[in-house]
Design a protein around this nucleic acid. Structure first.
Lengths: 249, 249
DNA sequence: CAGTTTATTTGATCCATCTCAATTCGGCTG
DNA sequence: CAGCCGAATTGAGATGGATCAAATAAACTG
């Protein structure tokens, strides 16, 4: 089996078959709701919140008022400890759900901040029971998202604990390409809306290391461009790099 | 404020107040059910499974048949990818729940193995609805455990991404002391039932580094003993180490 | 659009942790 | 209880990624 850089754009499923790899797959399927539940939810009248760049949606310790669905822009969730260390636990693209972490004691465990100007729709909690009655699949859908979320974090732990810097960056970029792509395609225009510092924090690296890892991918003609606008030239080779690490040859 | 090594045994809450530290706290409160729900569940007739050392309870990909409550011994859950890399995602002591990861598509995402000879009680899934009706608090309790689980993984990510080897080990040992301790006390007899290799994998380190980190704690008289049987002499100083890292003085 | 600030890239050095190798310890078996 | 074997410890050396520092590029401001 070869990893062509030519030919028609690859489907995500094909790429994943290449490596038979679950860990990349998990990180590529973000915690969105089922399409049909999402559509039903979208039909409900919901309040919209506009967030300026860098604005905070909720903070650690805040009471849970509702769940949030990102419709535009990009959010991040961050954990902060008493010593000021912080850890980004996820990036949240349109269609994804934010705020689930507050389920157990009705109090947010992390902070949600917009990276770009963003819009979220609020699924208010006081309507929860009412809405649940109307949408029978909702509870299961939420439990499902919650446990998918769990799986994603476990995969991330594996990536961070077991893979070297360049593989972490490859995995990150590939997962980004998947999430940015429409209808199962891998996006070829990668816009890294988040700063390098955020990627570094998420992956447990430094900005310099991110830069160098991207440089290595550029030198092997897997990606083009620099800064926030990258172009994914050879998605299959990126997937290979993500799965097997930097090619030794 | 001083960190005495003398005096009466410290309550967990006191230790945590020392550092005002959430991250340590999270890792110390395992995902048990509420006491009253747990008691109610315990009253139900449930099948018991005895596991020999190293035996597998379920594997990745297996269908979800039930949730498991550890009653004796120690389990670990492991994620394995197609390349054979593996990542331990948690250790599970008596009273804790295992198998929640399978909620979303009724298929286990990780493997559960006993580290010691262990006993688990099976909360069979086909009785789920029946039991739910009898125990009204159960659904909320499960959602709560699920999201607490999520919080635990996020904390672990922070530990692994932001802290150095010696702090990771200190956090691990302190959390172990908390979980092993009864009624809110910090245990002073630490039995590390899991091999060093498992601790290393969990924390993203090597066995040698674990050994050296423990040696450093021994040299500063925070712990005594070696191998599987350690004695926690100065819990407050261990907590300080976990929170602030190796003392610079 | 020039000037200023901030983010990113690149380079050189250093250090924490890994790797490899050798004991030592502890548990298990006959 | 002696002998065996896997696990844990300890040591010496190699290295990936961090750190420090500088140059470039991009974003923002008036």
């Amino acid at each position: 089996m070869s990893f062509d850089t030519q030919g028609p754009p690859l489907q995500l499923s094909e790429l994943l078959v290449y490596g038979q790899n679950a860990s990349v797959q998990q990180l590529c399927s973000p915690h969105t709701l089922d399409d049909n539940v999402l559509t039903q939810l979208a039909a409900l009248p919901m309040r919209e919140i506009k967030l300026a760049r860098g604005q905070t949606l909720f903070r650690q310790g805040h009471g849970l008022h509702g769940l949030y669905i990102v419709t535009e822009g990009l959010l991040k969730t961050t954990l902060v400890d008493a010593q000021g260390r912080h850890q980004i636990t996820g990036f949240h693209f349109p269609g994804e759900l934010v705020g689930l972490d507050a389920f157990h004691n009705r109090e947010h465990l992390c902070m949600a901040t917009s990276i770009e100007p963003s819009t979220v729709r609020v699924f208010a909690l006081h309507r929860f029971n009412e809405t649940m009655a109307r949408l029978p699949g909702l509870y299961d859908a939420l439990a499902s998202v919650l446990s998918k979320n769990l799986a994603e974090h476990e995969q991330l732990l594996m990536v961070v604990n077991q893979r070297d810097a360049s593989a972490r960056v490859a995995i990150f970029l590939f997962s980004l390409a998947c999430r940015l792509g429409r209808n199962g395609q891998v996006a070829s225009d990668l816009i890294l809306a988040m700063p390098r510092a955020d990627i570094a924090n998420y992956l447990g690296l430094t900005t310099e290391t991110i830069s160098r890892a991207i440089a290595a991918l550029r030198q092997t003609d897997i990606i083009e461009g620099r800064g926030k606008h990258l172009r994914l030239v050879a998605p299959a080779r990126l997937a290979d790099w993500a799965i097997n690490g930097r090619p030794s040859s």
